[in-house]
């Protein structure tokens, strides 16, 4: 071991909320190595800055008593339609708001605004065309919402099964939508996303009669192989078939937080 007996710096910022020491320039142990370099221990999570901001968002949501859902999927899986229909039901009982992320265009925000819920559109091309919504982007979007008038905030993330899974935004629950036109193997190819989510929707089941090869059971099994015990809802955002289970899960999750 290079640094036995030397006071090491541990600066992991965990999601579990424990306090950790954060290092400052110069307080790391320095060791001369035989290769003519000196090693400085750093031991920090690269996404520390995002974790800290996500935690700040989470505290803000808790203080305002807001339940936050992070909704993720690949492009074209039916996120916006699912959200339109979901809002229509939830808004009978809850004051809802939406933050919607896209690289470009305000098309989704325009569609969602028709629900009557306040909608903030984020175009990440301002932030370098990012493939995900990071916690600081959410923090900025909150400036456009009256938090005191919101019970449920739904964040429609950028269509992408890879990167959004890596970024905590301060949400309470995460849901992923997989549509039946995408192939049963997607959960196995994007395990982090399905591992990180608390619920999965298998959407567009109204198309099943036209997709002879799609095996719904295999798709659901693959999701559960990555995340045993995760609720999987077979839905059609178009016809609202299977929506009861999804809405119940959402209401129960919100109730857990809001009481």
């Amino acid at each position: 071991m290079l640094l036995d007996g030397i006071n090491r710096i541990r600066a992991y910022h965990h999601k579990d909320g424990h306090d950790h020491h954060h290092p400052h320039p110069g307080d790391g142990p320095v060791e001369t190595r035989s290769s003519g370099t000196r090693e400085i221990k750093v031991v920090r999570r690269v996404l520390d800055a995002n974790e800290i901001m996500a935690e700040a968002n989470r505290e803000r949501f808790a203080a305002q008593n807001i339940f936050v859902l992070n909704l993720m999927s690949s492009p074209g899986s039916g996120k916006t339609t699912t959200l339109e229909k979901t809002l229509r039901h939830l808004m009978r009982d809850y004051r809802c708001a939406v933050i919607v992320g896209d690289i470009c265009t305000t098309a989704d925000a325009d569609r969602l605004a028709a629900s009557g819920a306040p909608v903030v559109q984020i175009n990440t091309d301002e932030f370098g065309g990012d493939c995900h919504l990071a916690a600081h982007v959410i923090e900025k979007a909150l400036g456009g919402l009256d938090l005191a008038a919101i019970d449920i905030l739904i964040v429609e993330n950028i269509g992408n099964l890879v990167c959004p899974a890596e970024f905590d935004i301060g949400e309470d629950k995460r849901a992923v939508i997989l549509s039946v036109t995408e192939g049963e193997d997607k959960p196995l190819k994007y395990p982090l996303m399905f591992r990180e989510c608390d619920a999965a929707l298998l959407n567009k089941i109204d198309l099943l009669p036209y997709l002879e090869d799609f095996d719904v059971k295999l798709a659901a099994d693959n999701i559960r192989q990555i995340h045993p015990g995760i609720p999987v809802f077979e839905t059609s955002a178009k016809t609202e078939e299977g929506f009861e289970g999804w809405l119940d899960w959402l209401r129960d999750s919100a109730k857990e937080k809001l009481g």
């Binding site: 992991y12 290769s35 000196r38 400085i40 750093v42 031991v43 999570r45 959960p187 990555i226 045993p228």
Partner: peptide, 29 residues
């Protein structure tokens, strides 16, 4: 891509590692 226990088949598991994205150290010339 399978996250259930190979022994008892339980899906109640804890990931001990695999999510890291950490800077361990720098080496200065």
């Amino acid at each position: 891509p399978a996250f259930a226990c190979p022994d008892c088949k339980s899906g109640d598991i804890t990931l001990l590692s695999g999510r890291e994205l950490d800077i361990e150290s720098l080496e200065l010339a």
